[in-house]
Design a protein around this nucleic acid. Structure first.
Lengths: 209, 209
DNA sequence: AGATGATCTTTACGGCGTCCAGATATACTT
DNA sequence: AAGTATATCTGGACGCCGTAAAGATCATCT
Protein backbone atom coordinates (compact mmCIF):
# COMPACT_ATOMS: atom_id res chain seq x y z
CA UNK A 1 0.00 0.00 0.00
CA UNK A 2 2.56 2.58 0.99
CA UNK A 3 5.40 3.32 -1.34
CA UNK A 4 8.24 1.38 0.35
CA UNK A 5 10.24 2.47 -2.62
CA UNK A 6 13.58 0.98 -1.79
CA UNK A 7 16.25 1.30 -4.43
CA UNK A 8 16.49 -2.45 -5.07
CA UNK A 9 13.40 -4.07 -6.54
CA UNK A 10 12.32 -6.46 -3.80
CA UNK A 11 10.76 -9.72 -4.96
CA UNK A 12 7.24 -10.80 -4.57
CA UNK A 13 5.92 -12.96 -1.79
CA UNK A 14 8.57 -13.42 0.79
CA UNK A 15 10.34 -10.14 0.50
CA UNK A 16 13.74 -11.41 -0.53
CA UNK A 17 13.87 -15.15 -0.29
CA UNK A 18 17.20 -15.74 -1.96
CA UNK A 19 18.81 -13.35 0.54
CA UNK A 20 16.94 -15.07 3.38
CA UNK A 21 18.04 -18.49 2.15
CA UNK A 22 21.69 -17.51 2.06
CA UNK A 23 21.41 -16.07 5.56
CA UNK A 24 19.65 -19.19 6.80
CA UNK A 25 22.35 -21.33 5.24
CA UNK A 26 25.10 -19.36 6.94
CA UNK A 27 23.26 -19.52 10.25
CA UNK A 28 22.93 -23.30 9.95
CA UNK A 29 26.53 -23.58 8.86
CA UNK A 30 27.73 -21.86 12.01
CA UNK A 31 25.42 -23.63 14.40
CA UNK A 32 25.38 -27.15 13.00
CA UNK A 33 28.29 -27.46 10.62
CA UNK A 34 28.48 -28.36 6.95
CA UNK A 35 26.98 -31.84 7.28
CA UNK A 36 23.70 -30.34 8.51
CA UNK A 37 23.45 -28.04 5.53
CA UNK A 38 20.70 -29.73 3.55
CA UNK A 39 18.51 -27.80 1.20
CA UNK A 40 15.47 -28.87 3.18
CA UNK A 41 17.02 -27.69 6.42
CA UNK A 42 17.80 -24.33 4.88
CA UNK A 43 14.23 -23.99 3.64
CA UNK A 44 12.95 -24.99 7.08
CA UNK A 45 15.22 -22.42 8.74
CA UNK A 46 13.95 -19.77 6.35
CA UNK A 47 10.34 -20.81 6.99
CA UNK A 48 9.42 -21.93 3.50
CA UNK A 49 8.56 -25.21 1.84
CA UNK A 50 11.30 -27.60 0.65
CA UNK A 51 10.68 -26.73 -2.98
CA UNK A 52 10.67 -22.95 -2.60
CA UNK A 53 14.44 -22.53 -3.05
CA UNK A 54 14.19 -23.91 -6.59
CA UNK A 55 12.65 -20.64 -7.73
CA UNK A 56 15.84 -18.83 -6.77
CA UNK A 57 18.60 -21.40 -7.26
CA UNK A 58 18.94 -24.02 -9.94
CA UNK A 59 19.87 -26.64 -7.37
CA UNK A 60 21.59 -27.06 -4.04
CA UNK A 61 25.01 -26.44 -5.57
CA UNK A 62 23.99 -23.01 -6.78
CA UNK A 63 22.89 -22.02 -3.29
CA UNK A 64 26.18 -23.23 -1.86
CA UNK A 65 28.01 -21.23 -4.50
CA UNK A 66 26.19 -18.11 -3.38
CA UNK A 67 27.22 -18.83 0.21
CA UNK A 68 30.79 -19.46 -0.92
CA UNK A 69 30.88 -16.17 -2.81
CA UNK A 70 30.02 -14.32 0.38
CA UNK A 71 32.79 -16.24 2.07
CA UNK A 72 35.32 -15.12 -0.54
CA UNK A 73 34.19 -11.53 -0.10
CA UNK A 74 34.68 -11.76 3.65
CA UNK A 75 38.10 -13.30 3.17
CA UNK A 76 39.08 -10.52 0.79
CA UNK A 77 38.05 -7.97 3.40
CA UNK A 78 40.10 -9.72 6.07
CA UNK A 79 43.13 -9.73 3.83
CA UNK A 80 42.76 -6.05 2.95
CA UNK A 81 42.56 -5.18 6.62
CA UNK A 82 45.64 -7.25 7.40
CA UNK A 83 47.58 -5.55 4.62
CA UNK A 84 46.71 -2.15 5.97
CA UNK A 85 47.46 -2.96 9.57
CA UNK A 86 50.86 -4.50 8.93
CA UNK A 87 53.53 -2.14 10.16
CA UNK A 88 56.58 -3.01 8.11
CA UNK A 89 56.68 -3.93 4.47
CA UNK A 90 58.65 -6.96 5.55
CA UNK A 91 55.79 -8.17 7.73
CA UNK A 92 53.01 -7.59 5.25
CA UNK A 93 53.21 -10.96 3.56
CA UNK A 94 53.30 -12.86 6.82
CA UNK A 95 50.44 -10.76 8.15
CA UNK A 96 48.51 -11.70 5.04
CA UNK A 97 49.23 -15.38 5.57
CA UNK A 98 48.29 -15.27 9.22
CA UNK A 99 45.07 -13.42 8.40
CA UNK A 100 44.24 -16.04 5.80
CA UNK A 101 44.66 -18.91 8.22
CA UNK A 102 42.91 -17.08 11.05
CA UNK A 103 39.93 -16.51 8.78
CA UNK A 104 39.80 -20.19 7.95
CA UNK A 105 40.11 -21.11 11.62
CA UNK A 106 37.36 -18.74 12.67
CA UNK A 107 35.00 -19.77 9.88
CA UNK A 108 35.86 -23.42 9.35
CA UNK A 109 32.53 -24.44 7.87
CA UNK A 110 32.35 -21.47 5.56
CA UNK A 111 35.94 -22.02 4.48
CA UNK A 112 35.13 -25.61 3.59
CA UNK A 113 32.16 -24.53 1.50
CA UNK A 114 34.35 -22.02 -0.32
CA UNK A 115 36.50 -24.83 -1.69
CA UNK A 116 34.03 -27.74 -1.66
CA UNK A 117 30.73 -26.14 -2.45
CA UNK A 118 31.38 -25.43 -6.07
CA UNK A 119 29.71 -27.66 -8.60
CA UNK A 120 32.79 -27.62 -10.76
CA UNK A 121 35.68 -28.93 -8.68
CA UNK A 122 38.19 -28.26 -11.42
CA UNK A 123 38.31 -24.55 -10.93
CA UNK A 124 37.88 -21.91 -8.33
CA UNK A 125 35.15 -19.32 -8.80
CA UNK A 126 36.47 -17.04 -11.50
CA UNK A 127 36.34 -13.88 -9.44
CA UNK A 128 38.81 -15.40 -6.99
CA UNK A 129 41.46 -15.10 -9.62
CA UNK A 130 40.34 -12.08 -11.55
CA UNK A 131 38.89 -9.22 -9.55
CA UNK A 132 41.31 -6.60 -8.36
CA UNK A 133 40.75 -7.08 -4.67
CA UNK A 134 40.58 -10.86 -4.91
CA UNK A 135 42.62 -12.90 -2.49
CA UNK A 136 44.92 -14.03 -5.26
CA UNK A 137 45.63 -10.52 -6.49
CA UNK A 138 46.19 -9.26 -2.98
CA UNK A 139 48.85 -11.91 -2.43
CA UNK A 140 50.48 -11.06 -5.74
CA UNK A 141 50.42 -7.33 -5.12
CA UNK A 142 51.83 -7.78 -1.65
CA UNK A 143 54.68 -9.81 -3.08
CA UNK A 144 55.45 -6.97 -5.46
CA UNK A 145 55.31 -4.47 -2.62
CA UNK A 146 57.75 -6.69 -0.76
CA UNK A 147 60.19 -6.40 -3.59
CA UNK A 148 59.37 -9.15 -6.06
CA UNK A 149 60.12 -8.27 -9.68
CA UNK A 150 56.79 -7.59 -11.40
CA UNK A 151 58.29 -7.87 -14.87
CA UNK A 152 59.05 -11.58 -14.47
CA UNK A 153 55.48 -12.71 -14.77
CA UNK A 154 56.09 -16.41 -14.52
CA UNK A 155 58.18 -16.12 -11.38
CA UNK A 156 55.60 -13.81 -9.85
CA UNK A 157 52.74 -16.19 -10.56
CA UNK A 158 54.72 -19.11 -9.23
CA UNK A 159 55.53 -17.20 -6.07
CA UNK A 160 51.90 -16.15 -5.63
CA UNK A 161 50.79 -19.73 -6.10
CA UNK A 162 53.40 -20.92 -3.64
CA UNK A 163 52.25 -18.49 -0.99
CA UNK A 164 48.61 -19.33 -1.61
CA UNK A 165 49.20 -23.06 -1.43
CA UNK A 166 51.21 -22.68 1.73
CA UNK A 167 48.49 -20.67 3.41
CA UNK A 168 45.74 -23.00 2.22
CA UNK A 169 47.65 -26.06 3.35
CA UNK A 170 48.27 -24.56 6.76
CA UNK A 171 44.65 -23.45 6.99
CA UNK A 172 43.47 -27.00 6.50
CA UNK A 173 46.00 -28.57 8.82
CA UNK A 174 46.15 -26.05 11.65
CA UNK A 175 43.02 -27.48 13.23
CA UNK A 176 44.45 -30.96 13.70
CA UNK A 177 45.14 -31.52 17.31
CA UNK A 178 48.35 -33.30 16.42
CA UNK A 179 49.84 -29.82 16.51
CA UNK A 180 48.58 -28.94 19.98
CA UNK A 181 51.84 -29.67 21.75
CA UNK A 182 53.74 -27.60 19.22
CA UNK A 183 51.33 -24.71 19.69
CA UNK A 184 51.69 -24.99 23.45
CA UNK A 185 55.47 -25.00 23.19
CA UNK A 186 55.32 -21.80 21.17
CA UNK A 187 52.85 -20.11 23.47
CA UNK A 188 50.00 -19.32 21.07
CA UNK A 189 48.36 -20.38 17.88
CA UNK A 190 49.55 -17.28 16.09
CA UNK A 191 53.12 -17.98 17.14
CA UNK A 192 52.71 -21.44 15.64
CA UNK A 193 51.40 -19.99 12.39
CA UNK A 194 54.22 -17.46 12.19
CA UNK A 195 56.71 -20.21 12.99
CA UNK A 196 55.48 -22.35 10.12
CA UNK A 197 55.45 -19.39 7.74
CA UNK A 198 59.00 -18.53 8.72
CA UNK A 199 60.11 -21.90 7.46
CA UNK A 200 58.33 -21.36 4.17
CA UNK A 201 60.88 -18.81 3.36
CA UNK A 202 58.77 -17.24 0.69
CA UNK A 203 57.13 -15.51 3.60
CA UNK A 204 60.31 -14.72 5.49
CA UNK A 205 62.57 -13.59 2.69
CA UNK A 206 63.31 -10.14 1.49
CA UNK A 207 62.23 -10.34 -2.11
CA UNK A 208 64.38 -7.47 -3.28
CA UNK A 209 67.22 -8.64 -5.42
CA UNK B 1 35.23 -79.18 2.70
CA UNK B 2 38.97 -79.25 2.10
CA UNK B 3 41.28 -77.83 4.70
CA UNK B 4 41.96 -74.42 3.22
CA UNK B 5 43.90 -73.82 6.40
CA UNK B 6 45.17 -70.36 5.71
CA UNK B 7 46.97 -68.63 8.52
CA UNK B 8 44.34 -65.92 8.92
CA UNK B 9 40.94 -67.10 10.12
CA UNK B 10 38.67 -66.26 7.22
CA UNK B 11 35.14 -65.18 8.10
CA UNK B 12 32.01 -67.10 7.62
CA UNK B 13 29.60 -66.69 4.75
CA UNK B 14 31.09 -64.46 2.17
CA UNK B 15 34.69 -65.35 2.58
CA UNK B 16 36.02 -61.98 3.58
CA UNK B 17 33.35 -59.36 3.24
CA UNK B 18 35.16 -56.49 4.90
CA UNK B 19 38.03 -56.94 2.44
CA UNK B 20 35.53 -57.18 -0.42
CA UNK B 21 33.75 -54.05 0.75
CA UNK B 22 36.94 -52.02 0.87
CA UNK B 23 37.86 -53.22 -2.61
CA UNK B 24 34.40 -52.44 -3.90
CA UNK B 25 34.61 -48.98 -2.36
CA UNK B 26 37.94 -48.28 -4.03
CA UNK B 27 36.62 -49.56 -7.33
CA UNK B 28 33.61 -47.24 -7.10
CA UNK B 29 35.82 -44.38 -6.00
CA UNK B 30 37.94 -44.70 -9.11
CA UNK B 31 35.12 -45.25 -11.54
CA UNK B 32 32.46 -42.89 -10.19
CA UNK B 33 34.16 -40.51 -7.78
CA UNK B 34 33.57 -39.73 -4.12
CA UNK B 35 30.00 -38.49 -4.53
CA UNK B 36 28.91 -41.92 -5.76
CA UNK B 37 30.41 -43.65 -2.76
CA UNK B 38 27.27 -44.52 -0.82
CA UNK B 39 27.17 -47.45 1.56
CA UNK B 40 24.35 -48.95 -0.45
CA UNK B 41 26.33 -48.62 -3.67
CA UNK B 42 29.33 -50.30 -2.06
CA UNK B 43 27.14 -53.16 -0.85
CA UNK B 44 25.59 -53.44 -4.30
CA UNK B 45 29.03 -53.51 -5.90
CA UNK B 46 30.09 -56.24 -3.49
CA UNK B 47 26.91 -58.19 -4.18
CA UNK B 48 25.41 -58.08 -0.69
CA UNK B 49 22.38 -56.48 0.91
CA UNK B 50 22.45 -52.85 2.07
CA UNK B 51 22.62 -53.87 5.72
CA UNK B 52 25.41 -56.42 5.40
CA UNK B 53 28.26 -53.93 5.89
CA UNK B 54 27.01 -53.18 9.40
CA UNK B 55 28.37 -56.52 10.59
CA UNK B 56 31.87 -55.40 9.67
CA UNK B 57 31.85 -51.63 10.12
CA UNK B 58 30.10 -49.60 12.78
CA UNK B 59 28.86 -47.16 10.17
CA UNK B 60 29.74 -45.63 6.83
CA UNK B 61 32.48 -43.53 8.38
CA UNK B 62 34.32 -46.57 9.65
CA UNK B 63 34.36 -48.08 6.17
CA UNK B 64 35.70 -44.83 4.73
CA UNK B 65 38.39 -44.82 7.41
CA UNK B 66 39.48 -48.26 6.30
CA UNK B 67 39.69 -47.03 2.71
CA UNK B 68 41.62 -43.97 3.84
CA UNK B 69 44.10 -46.10 5.76
CA UNK B 70 44.92 -47.99 2.59
CA UNK B 71 45.39 -44.65 0.90
CA UNK B 72 47.90 -43.53 3.51
CA UNK B 73 49.80 -46.78 3.08
CA UNK B 74 49.99 -46.27 -0.66
CA UNK B 75 51.15 -42.70 -0.18
CA UNK B 76 53.85 -43.83 2.22
CA UNK B 77 55.06 -46.31 -0.39
CA UNK B 78 55.16 -43.61 -3.06
CA UNK B 79 57.18 -41.36 -0.80
CA UNK B 80 59.66 -44.11 0.09
CA UNK B 81 60.19 -44.83 -3.57
CA UNK B 82 60.72 -41.16 -4.33
CA UNK B 83 63.29 -40.85 -1.55
CA UNK B 84 65.23 -43.78 -2.90
CA UNK B 85 65.15 -42.68 -6.51
CA UNK B 86 66.29 -39.12 -5.84
CA UNK B 87 69.82 -38.71 -7.07
CA UNK B 88 71.23 -35.89 -5.01
CA UNK B 89 70.60 -35.17 -1.37
CA UNK B 90 69.69 -31.69 -2.45
CA UNK B 91 66.88 -32.99 -4.64
CA UNK B 92 65.42 -35.45 -2.16
CA UNK B 93 63.04 -33.05 -0.48
CA UNK B 94 61.71 -31.69 -3.74
CA UNK B 95 61.37 -35.22 -5.08
CA UNK B 96 59.35 -36.04 -1.99
CA UNK B 97 57.11 -33.04 -2.52
CA UNK B 98 56.59 -33.80 -6.17
CA UNK B 99 55.80 -37.43 -5.37
CA UNK B 100 53.27 -36.29 -2.78
CA UNK B 101 51.44 -34.05 -5.22
CA UNK B 102 51.65 -36.57 -8.05
CA UNK B 103 50.06 -39.17 -5.80
CA UNK B 104 47.24 -36.80 -4.97
CA UNK B 105 46.80 -35.95 -8.65
CA UNK B 106 46.73 -39.59 -9.71
CA UNK B 107 44.35 -40.65 -6.94
CA UNK B 108 42.21 -37.58 -6.42
CA UNK B 109 39.20 -39.38 -4.99
CA UNK B 110 41.26 -41.48 -2.65
CA UNK B 111 43.25 -38.45 -1.55
CA UNK B 112 40.05 -36.64 -0.69
CA UNK B 113 38.83 -39.56 1.38
CA UNK B 114 42.14 -39.61 3.23
CA UNK B 115 41.48 -36.13 4.60
CA UNK B 116 37.67 -36.01 4.53
CA UNK B 117 36.63 -39.52 5.29
CA UNK B 118 37.56 -39.53 8.91
CA UNK B 119 34.75 -39.27 11.41
CA UNK B 120 36.86 -37.04 13.62
CA UNK B 121 37.83 -34.03 11.55
CA UNK B 122 40.00 -32.62 14.30
CA UNK B 123 42.85 -35.03 13.84
CA UNK B 124 44.53 -37.11 11.25
CA UNK B 125 44.61 -40.88 11.70
CA UNK B 126 47.16 -41.43 14.43
CA UNK B 127 49.42 -43.65 12.38
CA UNK B 128 49.98 -40.80 9.95
CA UNK B 129 51.97 -39.03 12.59
CA UNK B 130 53.46 -41.91 14.54
CA UNK B 131 54.62 -44.87 12.52
CA UNK B 132 58.19 -44.84 11.37
CA UNK B 133 57.48 -44.91 7.67
CA UNK B 134 54.57 -42.51 7.90
CA UNK B 135 54.43 -39.62 5.50
CA UNK B 136 55.11 -37.16 8.28
CA UNK B 137 58.20 -38.98 9.52
CA UNK B 138 59.54 -39.40 6.02
CA UNK B 139 59.37 -35.66 5.47
CA UNK B 140 61.07 -35.01 8.80
CA UNK B 141 63.80 -37.56 8.19
CA UNK B 142 64.43 -36.20 4.73
CA UNK B 143 64.81 -32.74 6.17
CA UNK B 144 67.45 -34.07 8.56
CA UNK B 145 69.22 -35.84 5.74
CA UNK B 146 69.22 -32.55 3.89
CA UNK B 147 71.07 -30.94 6.75
CA UNK B 148 68.45 -29.70 9.19
CA UNK B 149 69.58 -29.72 12.80
CA UNK B 150 67.85 -32.66 14.51
CA UNK B 151 68.61 -31.37 17.98
CA UNK B 152 66.37 -28.33 17.58
CA UNK B 153 63.14 -30.23 17.85
CA UNK B 154 60.80 -27.30 17.59
CA UNK B 155 62.44 -25.93 14.47
CA UNK B 156 62.43 -29.39 12.94
CA UNK B 157 58.76 -29.92 13.63
CA UNK B 158 57.91 -26.49 12.30
CA UNK B 159 59.90 -27.15 9.16
CA UNK B 160 58.25 -30.55 8.69
CA UNK B 161 54.85 -28.97 9.15
CA UNK B 162 55.74 -26.23 6.71
CA UNK B 163 56.78 -28.73 4.06
CA UNK B 164 53.71 -30.86 4.66
CA UNK B 165 51.33 -27.92 4.46
CA UNK B 166 53.00 -26.67 1.32
CA UNK B 167 52.67 -30.04 -0.38
CA UNK B 168 49.09 -30.51 0.79
CA UNK B 169 48.11 -27.06 -0.35
CA UNK B 170 49.65 -27.58 -3.74
CA UNK B 171 48.06 -31.02 -4.00
CA UNK B 172 44.62 -29.51 -3.54
CA UNK B 173 45.17 -26.57 -5.84
CA UNK B 174 47.16 -28.15 -8.66
CA UNK B 175 44.02 -29.50 -10.28
CA UNK B 176 42.40 -26.10 -10.74
CA UNK B 177 42.46 -25.20 -14.35
CA UNK B 178 43.29 -21.63 -13.42
CA UNK B 179 46.89 -22.87 -13.51
CA UNK B 180 46.70 -24.37 -16.98
CA UNK B 181 48.37 -21.45 -18.72
CA UNK B 182 51.16 -21.45 -16.18
CA UNK B 183 51.69 -25.17 -16.66
CA UNK B 184 51.74 -24.68 -20.41
CA UNK B 185 54.27 -21.87 -20.13
CA UNK B 186 56.54 -24.14 -18.10
CA UNK B 187 56.14 -27.11 -20.40
CA UNK B 188 54.83 -29.75 -18.03
CA UNK B 189 52.90 -30.29 -14.86
CA UNK B 190 56.00 -31.48 -13.06
CA UNK B 191 57.87 -28.35 -14.06
CA UNK B 192 55.02 -26.36 -12.58
CA UNK B 193 55.19 -28.31 -9.34
CA UNK B 194 58.95 -27.89 -9.11
CA UNK B 195 58.59 -24.21 -9.87
CA UNK B 196 56.14 -23.70 -7.04
CA UNK B 197 58.29 -25.71 -4.65
CA UNK B 198 61.31 -23.64 -5.59
CA UNK B 199 59.54 -20.56 -4.36
CA UNK B 200 58.70 -22.24 -1.08
CA UNK B 201 62.31 -22.06 -0.28
CA UNK B 202 62.05 -24.68 2.40
CA UNK B 203 62.27 -27.06 -0.51
CA UNK B 204 64.99 -25.23 -2.35
CA UNK B 205 67.30 -24.28 0.46
CA UNK B 206 70.39 -26.02 1.66
CA UNK B 207 69.51 -26.76 5.24
CA UNK B 208 73.08 -27.05 6.45
CA UNK B 209 74.09 -24.17 8.59
C1' DA C 1 -10.52 -5.29 -14.01
C1' DG C 2 -8.49 -8.95 -16.06
C1' DA C 3 -4.54 -11.32 -17.81
C1' DT C 4 0.14 -12.65 -17.04
C1' DG C 5 3.72 -14.59 -14.92
C1' DA C 6 6.60 -15.00 -10.90
C1' DT C 7 6.42 -17.10 -6.37
C1' DC C 8 5.22 -20.52 -3.12
C1' DT C 9 2.85 -25.13 -1.45
C1' DT C 10 1.52 -29.85 -1.86
C1' DT C 11 2.43 -34.11 -3.25
C1' DA C 12 5.30 -37.61 -5.00
C1' DC C 13 9.49 -40.43 -6.42
C1' DG C 14 13.75 -42.73 -5.81
C1' DG C 15 18.00 -42.89 -3.10
C1' DC C 16 20.27 -42.50 1.19
C1' DG C 17 22.04 -44.20 6.21
C1' DT C 18 20.53 -47.01 9.65
C1' DC C 19 17.89 -50.15 12.67
C1' DC C 20 15.31 -54.47 13.66
C1' DA C 21 13.48 -59.08 13.16
C1' DG C 22 14.14 -63.17 11.05
C1' DA C 23 16.83 -66.66 8.30
C1' DT C 24 21.14 -69.21 7.61
C1' DA C 25 25.46 -70.99 7.98
C1' DT C 26 29.55 -71.63 10.85
C1' DA C 27 31.86 -72.77 15.28
C1' DC C 28 31.80 -74.61 19.90
C1' DT C 29 30.22 -77.97 23.41
C1' DT C 30 29.27 -82.41 24.79
C1' DA D 1 27.34 -86.83 15.84
C1' DA D 2 23.99 -83.85 17.67
C1' DG D 3 22.61 -79.63 19.55
C1' DT D 4 23.32 -75.15 20.92
C1' DA D 5 25.30 -70.72 20.50
C1' DT D 6 27.03 -67.20 17.64
C1' DA D 7 28.48 -64.76 13.74
C1' DT D 8 26.76 -63.50 9.23
C1' DC D 9 23.46 -62.10 5.88
C1' DT D 10 18.49 -60.76 4.07
C1' DG D 11 14.14 -58.19 3.91
C1' DG D 12 11.57 -54.64 5.35
C1' DA D 13 10.88 -50.30 7.58
C1' DC D 14 11.77 -45.37 9.11
C1' DG D 15 12.88 -40.72 8.45
C1' DC D 16 15.87 -38.10 6.03
C1' DC D 17 17.54 -36.22 1.46
C1' DG D 18 17.43 -33.71 -3.53
C1' DT D 19 14.36 -32.80 -6.98
C1' DA D 20 10.30 -32.67 -10.20
C1' DA D 21 5.38 -31.68 -11.45
C1' DA D 22 0.99 -29.57 -10.73
C1' DG D 23 -1.84 -26.49 -8.53
C1' DA D 24 -2.64 -22.25 -5.62
C1' DT D 25 -1.54 -17.34 -4.65
C1' DC D 26 -0.27 -12.84 -5.36
C1' DA D 27 2.29 -8.61 -7.52
C1' DT D 28 2.51 -6.32 -11.69
C1' DC D 29 1.17 -4.74 -16.42
C1' DT D 30 -2.25 -3.45 -19.78
Amino acid sequence: MSETAAAEPRPYHHGDLSRALIDAARRLLESEGPSALSLRAVAREAGVSPAAPYHHFKDKGELLEAVATEGWDLLNDSLSAARKSAHSVKDKLTALGVAYVVFARENPSLYRIMYDGSRNKDELPSHVHLEDDSAYCQVRDTLVEAGADPSDEIALELATTAAWCAAHGLAEMASFKQFDTLKAALGSEEAFLRGVFEHMKIFADDHRK
